[in-house]
């Protein structure tokens, strides 16, 4: 059976759901080997369709650029000869994939929304207008997958474990992390994992209360346009768009956002899009399954109250 490597994605000591999604795709291809750098997380991997966990020791990857992770994966690719390496499409994940493709002389596909048993990957391009299916034609298939694109399969049994100590050269330690400020996690779901996202733009005029309250009553994540993050109204980590995050939730609610092409690039593939905007001519209405022409400060609180009343 062919081997597949997946790179475990962990934030704040928690294995991210995207790891389960990678495992689900990998399972249809072959034996799922999860590459893990933090041994304390091994028990959390039992929740997903993982056959074997490779625990990599001897290096603290949080202290360097992605080079040591790339070196480790390169060594595993040569010892395991996997048919594919699957990585989450985060900024870091894509960098690791890019370097790994160079290091292993392999083709690379980024931002895939799925990959099938024959290693054919699907991507949605040109702002959501075109679907492309492609395959890697040389070496190991190195593919990054967008999170929130498949429901993770549950465990099929307890995974086996093995230990691996990579050889990390000095050339992989050139970029050093001197300190870090991780994202402060609120109680809300992670943007790229949430099934509902409520976003606010310049139309909030800096007051995100109505947006947050609507998000909370739906159990949604909160996003923001660049106008809102540039103004300092909401953290940059919540920016949706070309230079922010790409989200593809079941429901995206855009409040006081005009719909610039750079914003659309990050939310266009959402399954359902709802818009609240004062200006009936705002381009975002072109994407809307349901659009309310109105003031978000009236519409949102009323909607929040209506949902609260339904729940009661």
């Amino acid at each position: 059976m062919s081997e597949v490597l997946i790179l475990v994605d962990a934030v704040d000591g928690k294995v991210a759901k995207s790891t389960g999604e990678l495992a689900t795709y990998a399972k249809s291809i072959g034996k799922v080997n999860a590459v893990l750098f933090d041994a304390s997380l091994v028990s959390q991997l039992g929740a997903y369709a993982i056959d074997n966990v490779i625990i990599c020791g001897g290096i603290d990857i949080t202290k360097f650029s992605s080079a040591p992770v790339v070196q480790t994966l390169t060594q595993l690719v040569s010892s395991k000869s996997p048919t594919a390496v699957l990585i989450t499409s985060s900024s870091r994940g894509k960098e690791i994939a890019g370097r790994l493709a160079v290091a292993t002389d392999s083709g690379i596909i980024t931002d895939a929304t799925s990959i099938d048993a024959d290693l054919v990957a699907t991507q949605v391009i040109f702002g959501g207008s075109t679907t492309v299916r492609s395959a890697v034609a040389h070496g190991t298939a190195i593919v990054t997958l967008r999170s929130n694109s498949i429901e993770p399969l549950g465990a099929s049994g307890t995974p086996t474990t093995e230990e691996f100590t990579p050889t990390i050269t000095d050339s992989a330690k050139l970029g050093i992390v001197t300190s870090s400020q991780p994202v402060v996690k609120g109680g809300r779901p992670e943007l790229t994992e949430a099934s509902i996202v409520v976003s606010g733009g310049r139309g909030t005029n800096g007051d995100f209360k109505a947006v947050e309250e609507f998000a909370d009553v739906l159990g949604a994540a909160v996003g923001a346009s660049r106008a809102a993050t540039d103004a300092g109204w909401y953290p940059h980590t919540h920016q949706v768009g070309q230079t922010g995050k790409t989200v593809s939730p079941q429901l995206y609610v855009a409040c006081g956002i005009s719909g610039a092409i750079q914003h659309r690039a990050g939310m266009q593939t959402s399954k359902m899009i709802v818009v609240i905007n004062k200006d009936p001519e705002a381009p975002i209405f072109e994407l809307a399954d349901y659009g309310v022409v109105g003031d978000l400060f009236n519409v949102l609180p009323q909607a929040t109250a209506a949902i609260t009343a339904r729940k009661a």
């Binding site: 392999s106 890697v136 519409v299």
Partner: peptide, 21 residues
């Protein structure tokens, strides 16, 4: 080293509902 097998236009989003508040 990656080859496009096919490209298809996705159906345009059908016009949604737009209501005045």
């Amino acid at each position: 080293w990656s080859k496009v097998k096919d490209a298809t236009l996705r159906p345009a989003r059908s016009a949604g509902v737009k209501v005045e508040d």
